[in-house]
Design a protein around this nucleic acid. Structure first.
Lengths: 199, 199
DNA sequence: GTCTATAGTTTGATAGAC
DNA sequence: GTCTATCAAACTATAGAC
């Protein structure tokens, strides 16, 4: 509230335009692929010329960076990683399906988040922060649920990442690998779940 | 043997040059990324100028296509997917490790084979043939080993693909996910392995 | 705040000399 | 079979008018 009303309105308008640009960028990479994004086409899609984009983003990489942060934030919205021992299996099933559905809903987003395929692009620490937060939450959730094996987190992410990747690569838009999610969660629980009896 | 000796020697020389170009291409994409390959740089690496490459490949995509075929053929060299019921676990462990090691040894190769990330590139049927052959062999091996569940093949490839992807993305050059291969094979066997007792 | 104009590169690919 | 020369096009990014 230290800003004057006018500059506040201006900055709000500016944020709205940035959001509009990012929205158009997501549409565009959905059509031409993540690496196929060009500033000319992006500008045209929001009714601008390419140079005008530089009023909102310092570079093309800055746009990718903002997209990365949005994508990581989207994944973080899965706040239902709350896990209780009494409902462990149901909680993990819900979390797994939410992650799988979100990750496979947008191939470009999955490529940006989970693969290092853009030449020269590295997400900034700020953009990466939500991803770290997601891992932390998942780790805490596992502890709460009684899953304590040090490799549990890596195993969980590998299981889901494998299904997501195969779904996107071999059956985009289908459900050939989605049908395996439940089974993989049970495989995970059988190996990493809390043991009924002591060792 | 229908060719004259001279044309045979010429064509042999030609094949050798093509192989040399492909070798340089693998080196190059290992440094600049799969999408970063440029014909100028590639030509320079074999002591040519860019236009000369067109004597050996019709286009840049043709080079990618030949690389894809080589990569798929490399994977097919894992002929130790022979599986017998008596040695099922050991056979699968060996096959899993061979696949994992080969797939993670070259990030660009993994990207070319397992991800659809090159804008506009689709492997030709000829280049794809070894990949299909590999799947067929794996399927036959599973049947021989008593693994008959219709989802077993998808589950197996998902498990391995997840580990490979995470290894390449989060710990390139390390062994953080390689250490999970044995465990994943056992998880797979516990769920999809032949049952001791009839149903 | 958006534009025109353009710089400066890089790219894949072709024509034609040698 | 390799070259020089070059095309035509794309790209990111900047300068400066309005």
């Amino acid at each position: 509230m230290l800003e004057t009303p006018k500059s506040d309105r201006v900055s709000r308008r500016r944020e709205a335009t940035k959001a509009e640009i990012l929205g158009a960028a997501w549409d565009l990479v959905g059509e031409v692929g993540l690496a196929g994004l060009s500033l000319r086409d992006l500008a045209a899609r929001v009714g601008m010329r390419a140079p005008s984009l530089y009023q909102y983003f310092d570079s093309k990489h800055a746009i990718y960076d903002a997209m990365f942060q949005q994508a990581a934030q989207d994944m973080l919205e899965i706040r239902s990683v709350e896990v209780a021992p009494a409902t462990l299996r149901a909680d993990l099933l819900r979390a797994a399906h939410q992650f799988f559905d979100l990750a496979t809903a947008n191939a470009a987003r999955a490529q940006l988040l989970f693969q290092r395929t853009l030449p020269g692009f590295e997400p900034s620490p700020a953009a990466y922060a939500p991803a770290t937060e997601l891992i932390n939450r998942l780790q805490q959730a596992f502890i709460n649920g009684g899953i304590t094996h040090p490799d549990a987190l890596d195993a969980w992410t590998s299981l889901l990442s494998g299904l997501v990747n195969q779904q996107l690569a071999n059956d985009p838009g289908g459900d050939r690998y989605k049908r395996l999610v439940d089974r993989f969660v049970d495989m995970f629980l059988a190996d990493f779940g809390p043991k009924k009896k002591g060792k």
